[in-house]
Design a protein around this nucleic acid. Structure first.
Lengths: 124, 124
DNA sequence: AGTATTTTTGACTGAACAGTCAAGAATAAT
DNA sequence: ATTATTCTTGACTGTTCAGTCAAAAATACT
């Protein structure tokens, strides 16, 4: 009963994820998110609860979609910026690590971070 | 001529570096830094110019001191949080990478990030 | 068609933010 | 001892922050 959302949460989460990747978690403001998604605060908070809720939702979405382009960026930001202030994110990360542990996982993470930071640009 | 500083900038930079590592760059406020160092804003800004100046100073200090415990933490934060908003930090990182490139550098970075985030705790 | 329920809207809140500055205190150099 | 210079102090500024809320609009269900 009642009105349906005018937006697709998955689309919005993708846009939010790109924002987090571009500016970092603490570097992304709600005004940024409002501007980018075209939604207003009430809709965002009504759907995701909080800024942390938005991060967790976009992270989990990217982890459930195979080979998402958002995946590595959100993992890096989750590990470095968000995990220290959210046990839930830490748990998500631990679960991800446990199920994705390979001999070269550390090298993959390091490679992703070097690319993310712009220190390297191509295959090396 | 005139008064000398009552503090040792290297000591202060070490304390600031630990704060950045604990809370991240954007997650560390100037009030945090004032509280932790015991200095007031005027002294901090008179010495380091800006919050970014504080980060760059503590980063460069940690890079010039061999095997500093601050080193990896500040490198990670520099790469992920600060480099996107500071070309100077990006340059410092690129110089660091160019002079420290080894076959296992990516694995080392990944390992540092996994430890920093608390996903892993010991040798593995 | 009526209505209970949901979403949207946009103004609002108080707190936290980085950075500034004028005045006072200290002191290095003469 | 004087003084020019530097550092310290702490109150202050305007901005931006995440989050709230009451009212209005929309609509899914009966």
């Amino acid at each position: 009963m009642g009105r349906n959302k005018k937006f697709d949460p998955a689309d919005v989460l993708q846009a939010i994820g790109l924002l987090f990747i571009k500016n970092g978690y603490n570097g992304t403001s709600l005004d940024d998110i409002v501007r980018e998604t075209g939604l207003l605060r009430g809709s965002l908070y009504g759907t995701f609860g909080s800024k942390l809720g938005m991060f967790i939702a976009t992270l989990e979405l990217s982890l459930h979609e195979e080979n998402s382009e958002l995946r590595w960026g959100l993992l890096l930001i989750g590990m470095l910026e968000v995990a220290p202030q959210s046990t839930k994110v830490t748990q998500i990360m631990q679960t991800w690590y446990a199920t994705n542990q390979t001999p070269d996982i550390e090298a993959q993470i390091g490679h992703a971070l070097l690319k993310h930071s712009g220190i390297i640009t191509k295959g090396d």
